[in-house]
Design a protein around this nucleic acid. Sequence first.
RNA 1: GGGGGCGUAGCUCAGCCGGUUAGAGCGCUGCCCUGUCACGGCAGAGGUCGCGGGUUCGAGUCCCGUCGCUCCCGCCA
Length: 435
Amino acid sequence: MTRSLIRELSEKVGERVTVRGWVQTVRDQKRMQFVIVRDETGLAQAVLGKDDPPGELNDAVSALTAESAVTVTGTVVADERVKLGGLELKLDALQVDSPAEPELPVAADSALDKRIDWRYMDLRRPDRRLIFEVQTTAEHAMREFWRGDGFIELHTPKFMGSASESGAELFKVEYFDREAYLAQSPQFYKQMAMAAGFGRVFEVGPVFRANPSFTSRHDTEFTSVDVEISWIDSHEDVMAFEEAWLAHVLTVVKQTHGPAIEATFDTELVVPAVPFPRVTLEDSKTMLREAGHDAPGAGHDLDPPSERALSALIREQHGHEFTFVTDYPTTVRPFYHMRHVEDPTLTKSFDLLWRGIELTTGAQREHRYEQLMAQARDKKVDVAPIQYYLNFFRFGAPPHGGFGFGLTRLLMQMLGQENVREVTFLYRGPHRLEP
RNA sequence: GGGGGCGUAGCUCAGCCGGUUAGAGCGCUGCCCUGUCACGGCAGAGGUCGCGGGUUCGAGUCCCGUCGCUCCCGCCA
């Protein structure tokens, strides 16, 4: 018999159907037995009268344990007594495909770390499933937008022969008789695609950061969304792309899952107005101080508390959840960020904050070879190991820029989750390599 | 790497100024219950109080060390 999804049962009243899923609850009474079965589309009640003495099927129901994988067959009946959708299955056959041990190691209210130990059990909960449905929708909407705009999808190597920026946060791995590094970013390669004349590229893929970070928004491996665009005039073009792209993604996610997100996570998804507010780093510090907050001194990036305070201020003043912070000093940006002509101590760069968390770093890149070399020297970067990268700019590179975007941070904010581990299928951190 | 908090039953937690037999809810096992739907009732099992050392007549409780978790900072997306 073909498998019916629980969502479809209301159209199958009177039919004999087979439902396959997990036992959510067994209520085994004197005269009646009820089994609540869960599949990926919902919950359904199966009901069975108890014979005296109990029949084989009755005994099989009595022996069921929660979370066992089962196949149940019966006739769909409408019954207004059933609070679960007014429907039930008159059970006539039961197959235990795989029994669950009686005592479960985790519950919905277990500590996150324990839930990750038993992640597959945790992910059986419909609210956890919703996270990944939203992720699927969000990524699809991103691709929709990119394709409509002529972007090419990239798959860059994750093994690298040298550090792409500073060596500090790289994982070193054995690579035959030498050492390799795991890519911390596709940065250099997407710039190579610019030199290759690809025009506009994106990549959704894993990046690796060897930071011993113990926060709710860091992991050692995460999915990065990277975009790079040629023939721009300034970083403003990159921001203009990003805000339009993000507004599209949030529109689609809200259309598709808005009510479910609100019901499940008590979070309202607000589709942002375009353009997003922009503020230079220096002005943001002034704003913070005028509002009575501390702000880091010149030459320093905002710290997390000031990022949160700034987002709150922008929300008050502009009614907007997103903020582009622009024009970071060269001291806190890599050598390849383009510098302003009027003030070479500032870069043509930006961060994007959403509700106080950093989603993106982006910039116009320096595409002029001599200038790039000068900036590398200025930042005391050893150019020998990255000469292959510098070569990209020797034979005609277009002006270009782009951004890196943390997919998990986006999901975390969209769903009102407090930790990237909640929205990562399997979290990887300094002490977490399993499961 | 620095700072704070936490570690007690399968799960979530309580345990006071150190005191003799370590508790609760959920779950589990058994029995009872005319349709439950967070079902209900009765009974029961279940503990190396993270680990090691110390102080004390006596340590879940105090001290030192250690391991793990967690949040914040640094670092970043």
